[in-house]
Design a binder for these strands. Structure first.
Lengths: 336, 336
DNA sequence: CTGAAAGCGCTAACAT
DNA sequence: ATGTTAGCGCTTTCAG
C-alpha cells in the first residue's frame, strides 16, 4: 500500500507538503504539485480511507439494515440505496436482520463504533411484533442518525420514509368498488407489520364509506406456518361469490390470480385482483397483475438523501421529518 | 463517542492501562481490570473500529461486488455471504456493478484503499462479454485477495467457487432423454455468460452421446431487447413437436411452463420442463417446476471461507483453488 | 513555499 | 502493576 510517506521519501519533501500538494493547496508551488501528483498517479496512490476517516471522525459510510434480502421489495430498496449512496460518495455496509430483533441489535451495536455515520433501516418483523425499540432509540441517543423506511414505529423519533399505505389500499379497494364488485376480500400475510395494519385500515375505510356495499368486510390473514397456496385455493373454491381480491403483500395477489386461473374463474370478468407486488412478477402472470406500485426506488433514494442531509447538519438539531412517497395504482389485465 | 482516554481520565490511570485491562492482560491487577471493565460497560464503551483497523492494518471487512441484486440468485448469494461473514466477525461492504464494467472497476478502486481486506465478486456481464479483466488482475497484483463465484474467467488467477454447470445441464438433458423425449430444446437468456456457455455444452454433450436421439440440438437464445414471453410463446405455438425444454437461466423455465399451460399443452405428459430457477418461484407455478438446484447458500458460504482462509495465510502464498459446489436435479411436477 | 509537530483512537514494546 | 512512548496514515495549525 502506497502512503504519503513513500511519496515524500521518493521526492525528498515532507509528508505535509505531499498532502497539501495532493489537495491543490495554495501554499505549494505549481511545480511541486505537479511532481507530487505525477508520482502519486504513477504509483497508484490512494489515500487510506481508514486514516482519513479516523482523522475526520467521518466514515463516509452508511449502515443499511434490511430485514429480508430475499424479499424483492427490500432487494430493490437496497439497490436504490446503494446507487444513491455511491453517487454521493458514500459506501454502504449491509447487514441483514433476517427479521430477528437480536440480529438487528447486533448489527446496530457492531456498527455504532465509528464504522458508519448513520443508519438506514427497516424494522425487523420480530421487533415490530414485540414493539421493543429500545435498542434503536439507544443508537439515536448516541447521536447517530437513523432513517427508517417502510416499516416504522411511532415510538422512535427519527426521520422516516414511508408510503401512504392506508391511502394506497383505499384507492385499490375503491377501484374494485367502482367496478361494481360486491364481495371484496383482502388477503394478507403481513398482518403483524405496521404496513399491513395500515393497508387493512384503508380497505375497511373504502368499504365503510360506500353505502351501497352490503357484504361484510373480510380479511384473510395467513400466518407463517400456513400454506399460502392451499389457503387461497380453498378460499376461492369454497367462496365462488368472491369477485374482488386485494393482496396487500408481495405475493398473495399473484398466487390468488394463479389459483383463480387454475379454478377456471374468469379474470377480470368475474373476479378482479390487485396486488402489492413489484414488476418482477409480471413476467410470471398472464393476464398481467394490476398492482399498487410502491416506487421503491424513490423510497431508497429519499432515505439516503434524508440521512445525508441530517449528517451535514448534525450540529443544528432540527426536527425530524416523515416523508411520504406517493404510491399509485397501475391497472393491467386483472382489473376491468 | 467514548474513548480509552475518557475511561483513563475518569479512573485516573493511563490509557495503556485501560487498553491492557480491557484485553485481560496479565500485567494488570485483577482489581484494576474489574474497575476498568465496569466503567467501560457503564459508559457503553466500544473500541473505535477505524482506529483498530488502522493500527492493525486489517479492516475485518469484505468487499462484495454483485452484478445484479434483483436477480434472486445473487440476492441469495449475498444473504449467505453476509451470514457467514458475520459469523466469522467480518463486515461486508456491498457494491452493485449493475452488470457494468465501469461500475465494477469503480468499486474495486474505491475499496482497495484499506477499506476491505479482500473481495468476493461475480463478474459483470459487460466484463465477461468483453473479457477485459485487467482491472481485476490489477487488484490481485496489489496483493489484495479475490474470490470469484459463479461467473469466473480463465484469465484471472485466483480462488473460485463455481458449480459444475456443464454437468448440471448434462444431467438435466439426460433426464429428459431417459423419459424418451425426442425433441428437446434449450432456452437461454444468458448465452453471453461463462455459465451459459458451459450449460449449453452440457446439453449438447448429452444429446450427442445418445445414439438413438435423432433431432438436431436446438438452442434458443434470447437477447436483452427481445421479449422472453413473446419469443417462448411463439416457439411453442409454432413447434408443437417440442417435448422437452431446458431453461438454463433464472426465468425461462418458469415462463416456458406458464406459456405451455396457456397453450393447453399437457405438462408433463406431452412436454417436460426443467429450469435453473431458485425455489422462490415455485409458489408461482402449478405444477411445480423441476429444477437444477444450485445450492446458492453453499456457494456464498464457501466463498467467505476461502477468502478468510486466504487472508489468514497471506504471507505463505499458496496455490489458488477452484471449488466446485455440487448442483443437483430436483424433479417435481414438470417432469415424468 | 516548505516543514515540524500534534492528534484522531488504538496497541504494544519498552521503561519504571 | 502501571506509565511512557512511538507509530498506524492522514490533516492541519503553526513556524520558518
Amino acid at each position: 500500500m502506497v502512503t504519503l510517506k513513500h511519496l515524500a521519501e521518493q521526492l525528498n519533501v515532507s509528508i505535509s507538503t505531499v498532502s497539501k500538494a495532493l489537495h491543490d493547496s495554495e501554499e505549494i508551488s505549481p511545480d511541486t504539485i505537479e511532481r507530487v501528483k505525477a508520482l502519486a498517479k504513477f504509483l497508484n496512490y490512494k489515500p487510506n480511507r481508514l486514516a482519513v476517516s479516523l482523522k475526520s471522525s467521518k466514515a463516509n459510510t452508511i449502515g443499511v439494515i434490511i430485514p429480508d434480502i430475499l424479499n424483492h421489495f427490500f432487494a430493490k430498496a437496497l439497490f436504490a440505496i446503494e446507487q444513491e449512496a455511491a453517487k454521493q460518495g458514500y459506501q454502504i455496509i449491509t447487514c441483514l436482520s433476517n427479521e430477528l430483533q437480536s440480529k438487528e441489535n447486533d448489527s446496530l451495536q457492531l456498527l455504532s463504533n465509528g464504522s458508519v455515520d448513520g443508519f438506514i433501516m427497516s424494522i425487523a418483523e420480530e421487533t415490530q411484533v414485540a414493539n421493543k425499540v429500545d435498542h434503536i432509540n439507544s443508537i439515536l441517543n448516541q447521536n447517530i442518525p437513523i432513517v427508517l423506511f417502510d416499516r416504522v414505529s411511532e415510538d422512535i423519533d427519527c426521520d422516516k420514509v414511508i408510503i401512504d399505505d392506508t391511502g394506497a389500499a383505499f384507492q385499490a379497494t375503491n377501484h374494485l368498488l367502482s367496478e361494481g364488485r360486491k364481495n371484496i376480500v383482502l388477503i394478507s400475510r403481513i398482518d403483524d407489520l405496521s404496513v399491513g395494519k395500515l393497508r387493512v385500515k384503508g380497505y375497511l375505510k373504502a368499504l365503510n364509506e360506500d353505502k351501497t356495499y352490503t357484504a361484510e368486510p373480510r380479511c384473510i390473514t395467513i400466518s407463517h406456518d400456513e400454506s399460502i397456496e392451499n389457503k387461497i385455493e380453498a378460499l376461492l373454491t369454497n367462496n365462488r361469490d368472491i369477485d374482488g381480491i386485494v393482496g396487500i403483500d408481495n405475493t398473495t395477489g399473484v398466487i390468488a390470480l394463479q389459483k383463480a386461473i387454475k379454478l377456471n374463474i374468469n379474470v377480470p370478468k368475474d373476479l378482479s385482483v390487485i396486488g402489492f407486488s413489484d414488476e418482477n412478477v409480471l413476467q410470471f402472470t398472464d393476464p398481467k397483475l394490476s398492482t399498487v406500485s410502491q416506487h421503491t426506488l424513490d423510497i431508497g433514494k429519499a432515505s439516503v438523501e434524508m440521512l445525508i442531509e441530517k449528517l451535514n447538519n448534525k450540529s443544528s438539531d432540527q426536527k425530524n421529518i416523515t416523508k411520504t412517497i406517493k404510491a399509485n395504482l397501475i391497472l393491467r389485465g386483472t382489473t376491468k
